[in-house]
Amino acid sequence: MYLVIVGAGPVGDHLVEMALEAGHTAAVIEPDSTLAQAVAERHDIRVLEMAIGDEDVVAESHLAEADAVIATTSDDATNLLAMLIAQEAGVEQRTSTVNQDSHLAIFRRLGVRVLADPERLIAEHLLNMTEP
């Protein structure tokens, strides 16, 4: 599978590592130059140092050929834009983290598979692990 990953923060970085291990090819879009440099140094992967709203994003990331787009940033606006652009480009699988519960409905209406509030998820997970 060819994955386009939006954001090279902690989540994106781990996602890249796991995707590569699973044998997928991937491209990462990250506007912050420090984060972009770091992910490029760690993984054998195509890194685009640009914002998702950039004009050339669709062409440079070969979005039309992507099997899936995954948005991992902590900013819902960025994630939403990524999903809209992916939909325009005709990408079948669109997945995103959603950081504010109130935004969940918007993402769902767009046909996006969502992971709501990742931090809350971690908290729940921790609690599950502690209870006997």
Partner: peptide, 17 residues
Amino acid sequence: ASRHELVMVHYEGARVS
């Protein structure tokens, strides 16, 4: 590379700018 792509080369077993 395309305009925004970060290019890396392998040197001494590391990926270097």
